[in-house]
Simulated scan of single mutants.
Amino acid sequence: MAATPRTPTGASLAETQPQPGLRERKKLKTRIAIRRATYRLIAEQGYEATTIEQIAEAAEVSPSTVFRYFPTKEDIVLTDEYDPIMEAELRARPAGEDPLESIRAVLTQGLAAFIEEEREEVIQRTRLMVEVPAIRARMTETMATTSELLVHALADRTGRSRDDLDVRVFTAAVLGAVREVMLYWAARDHKDDLIALLDRALTTIQGGLRL
């Protein structure tokens, strides 16, 4: 959902966390290889013309391996490895900080890092969100996983239960704002400042829609 957020010291959160074992590193390497092969093929021949078999061949894995990591072709485009990192960064925000400000800091820092490090992938992903209805529909489904992670973190930070309606509504509003920002940015040919758009959207949630 986001890129590698930065800690107050400037290091990425991933650098401060226990490093994964060999098996997990191999799985991550395979996931990245599949995703990069997919983006390369889509750039060359389009989304609809790109098949799982072609992706598997380009990534040097079997089609069954592709499906083991990504249940659908849409998931290859939409899935990344940053949701757990974002959750951990949210939990690490200062105690007593306003929840919206915590979310704002985590999301804006994460997106800024993502754009800096993988701008072309972000552009291609968001363009496909606009152009391919199946990806846009699947995005709504996959955001449920991100939502659960953030709900748990926010509930624990605020001392509320994880099924608290206010926490769930707040989280849904934030993720809905992120979704609309991405679509708006892509529809305008990625000319706007994405971080400024996100900040504007979160400010709208904070203050409401005024005449």
Score class of each variant (00 low, 15 high):
28 L>V: 02
56 A>K: 06
31 R>P: 12
64 S>H: 05
68 R>S: 14
51 T>N: 02
14 A>C: 10
4 T>P: 01
62 S>E: 07
3 A>D: 00
49 A>F: 04
32 I>L: 15
57 E>S: 02
47 Y>D: 06
43 A>D: 13
60 E>V: 08
60 E>Y: 10
73 K>C: 01
89 E>R: 14
77 V>W: 05
54 Q>F: 02
6 R>P: 03
14 A>V: 08
48 E>L: 01
25 R>Q: 13
24 E>Y: 09
55 I>Q: 00
59 A>F: 11
80 D>I: 00
64 S>Y: 04
87 E>N: 10
19 Q>G: 10
68 R>G: 13
66 V>M: 07
87 E>S: 14
78 L>S: 01
89 E>A: 11
8 P>Q: 03
89 E>M: 09
11 A>R: 14
45 Q>I: 10
25 R>S: 13
36 R>C: 05
65 T>N: 07
53 E>C: 13
83 D>S: 08
56 A>P: 04
61 V>K: 02
22 L>G: 13
20 P>Y: 15
50 T>A: 02
17 Q>N: 04
90 L>I: 06
43 A>N: 11
35 R>C: 01
7 T>D: 12
2 A>V: 12
86 M>F: 04
66 V>A: 05
41 L>G: 00
65 T>P: 06
20 P>G: 08
78 L>T: 00
12 S>W: 00
90 L>H: 03
62 S>V: 11
69 Y>R: 03
9 T>V: 13
2 A>I: 05
75 D>E: 13
80 D>N: 13
65 T>C: 11
50 T>I: 01
35 R>V: 03
33 A>W: 14
4 T>V: 04
19 Q>T: 08
43 A>E: 11
80 D>E: 12
46 G>I: 00
32 I>K: 15
2 A>W: 07
89 E>N: 03
14 A>M: 11
15 E>F: 05
16 T>Y: 12
29 K>G: 10
38 T>I: 04
70 F>R: 01
62 S>Q: 12
86 M>W: 05
73 K>P: 00
35 R>I: 03
9 T>Y: 14
76 I>S: 09
58 A>D: 07
6 R>M: 12
14 A>D: 06
11 A>S: 15
55 I>V: 08
53 E>H: 08
67 F>L: 15
63 P>V: 14
80 D>T: 06
25 R>A: 06
25 R>M: 15
5 P>F: 02
56 A>G: 09
17 Q>F: 07
52 I>V: 04
49 A>D: 09
54 Q>T: 00
81 E>Q: 05
3 A>H: 01
70 F>I: 05
68 R>E: 11
7 T>Y: 09
8 P>L: 05
22 L>M: 15
38 T>H: 05
19 Q>C: 10
32 I>C: 15
87 E>W: 05
2 A>S: 15
57 E>Q: 08
68 R>F: 14
50 T>M: 01
54 Q>G: 09
41 L>T: 04
23 R>M: 13
87 E>K: 14
14 A>N: 02
68 R>T: 07
86 M>T: 06
73 K>Y: 09
65 T>H: 08
73 K>N: 05
39 Y>L: 12
79 T>Q: 08
16 T>P: 05
26 K>S: 11
21 G>W: 09
16 T>F: 12
70 F>A: 02
56 A>Y: 04
7 T>W: 08
56 A>R: 05
41 L>F: 00
21 G>C: 07
28 L>D: 09
40 R>F: 04
41 L>C: 03
